[in-house]
Design a binder for these strands. Structure first.
Length: 699
DNA sequence: ATAGGGTTAG
């Protein structure tokens, strides 16, 4: 006859839940009477195997339950992440038992996860009333964790102060609390107090939280001393600590620190690799990131979603389409290609590698689409100059009830400007108001610009007048709006109003707008005065854009020599803006000599820009220098440069006529030009389509 | 019997 005692011993030998269940059914068959001790042991064993249903059944059948049994069942539900049931049982427990030291932390942790502030506060009240519990360190750390997870660091601090000699865990809980409530400064302050109070008692868990706080503050100094602690205390084999430091070095851009630590690490996991790859990808070392990625693969480490995303960012940064496609294949093979973040990273990569249709393809295959992927797709189409596609995406975005961000709105207003369709601008303006998109000065400025570029200066001014406290961004956009419409005097008048009657100081953008307004209106003297004011009164260093406008200003009235002199006196490098303006003026006044100088400089500055070669070739052609023409064409061929076709778009009511005019089909160009000329007057009246860019010969 | 963290990404 097997006794109950023997069965208990056998139960304890069970290594699996299945074994326990079988043995248990055997005892029922043998008709062994259950006593409380027997049941309690079973509850304990079942709960260890997290067999919740069986545990619960036994628990419910018990006539008498000790606090220990209650604790077991509470912990069982807690481990199963059924925090709600754990708290329900905790409430029931009160009718028969008093919770003890072990019960309280479990219940508080459930409250912490559920952010059940009131429930936890009741438990805290109970702790205060009960003798002995309030001084227990486990209860203390649970209370601190509870308050910090509920975002109540002041209350956490009150609890902390009840402990005259806090242990490492209590200290760490406070540090983590501050770190996770975005108070990294406080976290570091507590860490230094802890080091002072505890001297050499440190452990890796504490250090991980400290490093997280350093990441938030981008504080490399404390991070370096944590690295020192790590070596001194022999924690260098703690992978998660090393990884946390790698992350810190990555976020702060200390590539050499990251590389050195990575080299010395004996154990590395996929997170270690991911951290360094991301570090290189984000700090201009895309090539090194991809080399590391290859090395990781060759070592047989399986890349996860995160590593693939970092590798895609590296491809994006250095525009390596080939490797990007290879990573796309790896992702597809591992069935990651439907993952929303992988897809978004793929969209970004393809967009930046000038493959927008591949990006759109990825987007269309996505099963779940959120605001980020819409936004990035929109941004990418905008980046690639696909205005109609951008508009289509924006419409789909609204149809999918994805709320556009203010950045998306700025982008779409730029699209409206590029398309020059006033109806789009006013319609989307209405949307923005109706949807309650967060309004900031960049949004208003882009709206002002868009109305102006679509030909309605009145609407621009209307928006401007509706803004009470416009900042420098908004004022600058109005100067630009007047400038676009050739109203230089009005722009200057507003500019003077701003500097005399508001505390707003003009910035570099303001001067770009106002100088360009002067240039477009032929206000040479005013332009030069304003330029001098920028330098002498506002102590602003002119940039390439300002110089370019000044060259344009002089060039437009035919003062080519003065424009050249102006360029010659520029200190520092001369960019495409300056030479581009000079080239434009040279063409108007048919000065091929100067045009050649400017075009040669442009080719030098950006040897991959096909347009520059064509301009240079055209200049030689005008001078009938056919040898030079052939030479330029040869370079284009050798470099395998492709021409991008110029596009002209006419929108007539709802009918969109799009004509592609590249410089070979002169027939087409002339046809469109004639069509535009005959339609322009009519369209202005009837369709409000005023913005026309007839740059047909600049393919 | 019980505790503090878990890092890389759109």
């Amino acid at each position: 006859m097997i006794t109950a005692e023997l069965f208990l011993k056998l139960f304890q030998q069970c290594k699996t839940g299945k074994c326990l269940t079988q043995l248990h059914s055997h005892t029922i068959k043998s008709g062994l009477t259950h006593n409380t001790l027997f049941a309690a042991k079973l509850v304990e064993l079942y709960s260890n195997f997290t067999l919740i249903q069986t545990t619960r059944k036994l628990f419910d059948e018990m006539p008498h339950r000790t606090v220990y049994i209650w604790n077991l069942i509470l912990k069982c539900y807690y481990r199963e992440k059924n925090y709600k049931e754990s708290l329900v049982l905790f409430s029931q427990m009160f009718s028969s038992q008093k919770p003890d030291l072990y019960t309280i932390p479990i219940a508080l942790k459930s409250c912490a996860v559920l952010k059940a502030l009131e429930f936890g506060e009741i438990i805290h009240g109970f702790v205060k009333k009960s003798d002995g519990i309030g001084t227990n360190l486990f209860v203390g750390s649970a209370l601190i964790e509870f308050y910090s997870k509920c975002g109540e660091m002041d209350n956490a601090l009150c609890v902390f102060e009840e402990y005259p000699v806090p242990d490492t865990v209590i200290w760490t809980t406070m540090i983590t609390g501050y770190e996770q409530n975005n108070e990294p400064k406080q976290a570091l302050e507590f860490f230094s107090q802890m080091v002072r109070a505890q001297q050499n008692v440190l452990d890796p868990v504490t250090l991980i939280s400290v490093v997280s706080a350093c990441v938030q503050m981008l504080n490399i100094n404390v991070g370096r001393s944590v690295h020192g602690f790590m070596i001194r205390f022999g924690f260098d084999n703690v992978l998660s600590l090393s990884n946390a430091l790698l992350n810190l070095y990555g976020k702060t851009g200390f590539l050499n620190y990251a590389a050195n630590l990575f080299k010395t690490m004996e154990k590395k996991d996929v997170i270690s690799w991911g951290s360094v790859i991301s570090c290189y990808a984000h700090h201009g070392s895309g090539k090194e990131a991809l080399d590391l990625f290859d090395m990781m693969i060759s070592k047989g480490i399986e890349p996860n979603v995160v590593v693939l995303i970092s590798a895609l960012q590296a491809c994006e940064a250095i525009r390596n389409l080939e490797v990007g496609k290879r990573i796309h294949e790896i992702a597809a093979r591992k069935r990651f290609d439907l993952n929303i973040m992988i897809s978004t990273a793929l969209i970004d990569m393809y967009m930046n590698c000038s493959s927008p249709y591949e990006a759109i393809n990825v987007f269309e295959r996505m099963q779940v689409k959120d605001s980020v992927c819409y936004s990035n797709l929109l941004c990418g189409c905008h980046h690639n100059g696909m205005w109609y596609k951008s508009m289509e995406i924006f419409k789909n975005m609204l149809a999918s009830e994805v709320k556009p961000s203010s950045v998306d709105m700025v982008k779409i207003f730029t699209v409206c400007s590029e398309l020059g369709v006033l109806q789009y601008t006013s319609c989307i303006h209405g949307f923005a108001i109706k949807l309650g998109v967060e309004n900031n000065s960049y949004l208003s400025a882009s709206l002002i610009e868009s109305y102006a570029k679509c030909g309605s200066l009145d609407d621009s001014i209307g928006v401007f007048n509706g803004i009470k406290d416009g900042d420098v961004v908004i004022w600058s956009s109005v100067f630009a709006a007047y400038g676009l419409h050739g109203k230089g005097h009005e722009a200057l008048e507003l500019f003077n109003q701003m500097i005399k009657h508001t505390p707003i100081k003009p910035n570099d953008v303001s001067f770009v707008s106002i100088l360009s307004a002067c240039s477009h209106a032929g206000l040479v003297k005013e332009g030069i005065d304003t330029f001098n004011m920028m330098v002498n009164v506002y102590n602003q260093n002119p940039n390439s854009k300002h110089y370019g406008i000044m060259v344009d200003l002089l060039g437009r009235i035919g003062e080519l020599d003065k424009a050249m002199e102006f360029i010659e006196q520029i200190q520092g490098p001369v960019g495409a803006n300056e030479w581009g303006s000079l080239l434009g003026a040279s063409r108007i006044y048919q000065n091929t000599q100067m045009g050649e100088v400017a075009a040669r400089k442009l080719v030098e500055l950006d040897p991959n820009q096909t347009g520059h070669y064509i301009l240079l070739s055209n200049i030689y052609a005008v001078d009938e220098k056919w040898d030079n023409v052939a030479e330029v064409r040869k370079v284009v061929k050798e470099r395998k440069l492709k021409k991008v076709s110029g596009q002209s778009v006419i929108e007539l009511r709802d009918e969109v006529c799009s004509f592609i005019a590249n410089d070979r089909s002169h027939q087409n160009c002339e046809l469109i030009y004639e069509l535009l000329m005959s339609l322009e007057g009519k369209m202005k009246e009837e369709c409000n389509v005023n913005s026309m860019d007839f740059s047909l010969h600049e393919a």
